[in-house]
Design a protein around this nucleic acid. Sequence first.
DNA 1: CTACGTGCAAAGCTTTTGCATGGAA
DNA 2: TTCCATGCAAAAGCTTTGCACGTAG
Lengths: 164, 164
Amino acid sequence: MHLAAFDEDIDPTEKFREFLQTKGMRLTPEREAVVTAVYATHDHFDAEQWVANLSQRGRKDGASRSTIYRTLSLLVEAGLLRRVARANDREVYEHDYGYPQHDHLICSKCGDMIEFANDVISETLEKVANAHGFRMSGHRLEVEGVCAKCLRPPQRSHRRLDMI
Amino acid sequence: MHLAAFDEDIDPTEKFREFLQTKGMRLTPEREAVVTAVYATHDHFDAEQWVANLSQRGRKDGASRSTIYRTLSLLVEAGLLRRVARANDREVYEHDYGYPQHDHLICSKCGDMIEFANDVISETLEKVANAHGFRMSGHRLEVEGVCAKCLRPPQRSHRRLDMI
DNA sequence: CTACGTGCAAAGCTTTTGCATGGAA
DNA sequence: TTCCATGCAAAAGCTTTGCACGTAG
């Protein structure tokens, strides 16, 4: 699946530097540490996860809590990250650059977030927005329910239902 | 537009009382004050709005902050309310009983929430969920962007752009 | 030398909770 | 008398901010 387009082949750090430049800001070692860290894998994450990780490291390899929060906001502004849901009262982030648009099924039992891509939804939203003269810049769709894994009755203890 | 179905013709307070009974709880004057208040109009609202309003009133006509928060959660459980978005760091609620399913366009300029109903979206979500063996219980869809009103250049002060 | 950045600690906010008091059944 | 409820004040928990100090250009 190759969805890369126009500017999506330069790496996130570079894209971030460009964004910062347009705002008269610099790509500091701390900011770079944050981009590198969050782009190392395509997992969903929240701010505290990286605070725990990055605020321990040496000076030029990590960043403080304040800097992490400030940088995450900048990354969202830059179009590199997307605030995609909320779990345990924390904002959940994910990459918004270099990956195809998608939404999530969120399991209320185990918290798992299952990604799915569906063109019908985005097309429909376009139409609805147009019909209202609304200029859509993005959306956030959280589908709540129980995932297949959690629906399967526990294998260990049979007959558990009888206990209820 | 008459969408009322099976049990949707008894009033919210009564439905709440039934729900509470199944949990061995009572419909107190405080709880009743909350249901009545939030069901008086079909507007979107957040908890603090009603804290400001109801916590001022006399004993049996209002409710304290704690009771309001606790009651709102019960109303969500009961299927009477739905947490539909988040604005200014507050949970936004709306009726989930007696009104057809819908989602929202949220203007990032003025904060306005425009309701829209679209069957294609719910149908698509059903399909996606089924395909993943996911039992969907609901969803939350927030479409971000700028509404028609805010897109129109301000009429009052012409040439405002020159001032920037 | 001037502006931008960082880190720390404190503040800000919404929402939740512990606890003592009060009331319904 | 036994639970369920309320209200108050405090706690919790994430995120933001004021401020003093550094440092790049």
